[in-house]
Nucleic acid binder design. Sequence first.
DNA 1: GCGTTTTATTTTAGGTGTCAAGTAATTTGC
DNA 2: GCAAATTACTTGACACCTAAAATAAAACGC
Lengths: 167, 167
Amino acid sequence: MTEHSRVWIDAETKIADAPGDHHDELRLWLRLFSVTRLMENDVRSRLQNEFDVTFPRFDILSQLYRVPDGLILGELSQRLMVSPGNITSVIKRLMDDGMIVRNQNPNDRRENIVQMTALGREKFIQMAASNEEWVRNLTKDLAPADVKALLALLQKMKTSVRRALDE
Amino acid sequence: MTEHSRVWIDAETKIADAPGDHHDELRLWLRLFSVTRLMENDVRSRLQNEFDVTFPRFDILSQLYRVPDGLILGELSQRLMVSPGNITSVIKRLMDDGMIVRNQNPNDRRENIVQMTALGREKFIQMAASNEEWVRNLTKDLAPADVKALLALLQKMKTSVRRALDE
DNA sequence: GCGTTTTATTTTAGGTGTCAAGTAATTTGC
DNA sequence: GCAAATTACTTGACACCTAAAATAAAACGC
């Protein structure tokens, strides 16, 4: 039992489980939420302890890593699903750390493009490798077929959610 | 398209999808995370707009609703999977709103039991009903069998995560 | 072409989150 | 029985988060 594994009694465990009633969707949401929080808490504390980086910063780096040409702040905000006003300060700190750079688009001076630096790229690669290892370890009791099935079902779920949000 | 449905391009959409490689677990984590955030953002903004309550407060009320005898702060912290230091101020605000009360346990004066008030109970019932409706709407394109399958697979996943955290 | 509108970002106020250090109450161990 | 360890909670420093208002630049409309 490591420091990363404080035992949570999560928000969903104690609900009377009478499967098959009319509350399965709610139960699904609670379970989804609790698994996510469980994993997120572990990943967050490991990122902090082993790389001295916060989860949101890692999140930003993940995005920028995949887009070498960089992203404008608005795109970043949308991809991370956080509000635009939030990005400003986190970006500032990543710049102070030398992980990213930020440049005004000369063709549209409202836009600010952020890109990874070589340093950011180098550090991110290490974090990403550890991150993947942590996640694989957390999910190691799932059979590959379960993983596949979850991927497909969660895709369906995401599609449903997006459709509902677009209405 | 309502105010609740700002269109996010989430953190996971843009990953090259080459299913079947060795990165399915990571992809699963990203997808799980993005669905959760998508739903959470919607639920949070609706709770705020329609009930003037924050998500964490709703979370606390949900727990207390199910336990009429109340919970001590530490239990609450564990169930919500948030750090103990966090609970204090949120509890304080819920008390100011008259939704909950807090009493010292006379047998162990370190412990503080929080319970819902009649007002809290009354308001929570309305919120919970709306919440369930929102969630059902968000997941409405999922067949009942998909919901069942997801519930089972996420349970497996949660078990795997807990086991890994206990090591 | 010039005022209006839209778009991109920042700022502000307030709530929530962590961790670490601190306080108070109980339990342990000799 | 009393010092030491543990448990429950609070506080303080700092990071993130949202919503809404403010700023600045580009696009639009007539």
